[in-house]
Amino acid sequence: MGKSGRVLVLDDEKIVCDRLTEHFSKKGLEVEAFTDSQQAIDRIASQDFDVIITDLKMKGPTGMDVVHFVRRNRPGAELIVITGYASIDTAREAEYSGVYKFITKPFKMNNLAKSVMKAVHKAQTRKGR
């Protein structure tokens, strides 16, 4: 069965990475997950992804650092921000940075999956795939 999109998951909580990897893989997506934000940035620099899902508050580069890096270097990718520390300000900042979706933990996996599938479609349409 072919893969229908490339997704990167970044969250310093291993459980989030594990569960999203499992869930999205079942949906036929190709998933890479990272708990270390610098490693994720390095990977984004070398590999094109359709969707990048990132936690907001992490040690080292923060989620917003990742958002800015992606905007500068991978403008074709869609961004989804997840966090347990939601605030209106960060949500607004994320919106202004062109984030596709802002999701607060705890959240339903299927809801995130629907957003991811739409974001993959949007990214691939933009890239002309």
Binding site: E13, V16, R19, L20, I82, G84, K105, P106, K108, N110
Partner: peptide, 9 residues
Amino acid sequence: GEYIFDVQY
């Protein structure tokens, strides 16, 4: 099992 949550939650 439907939700994603973490230790902070």
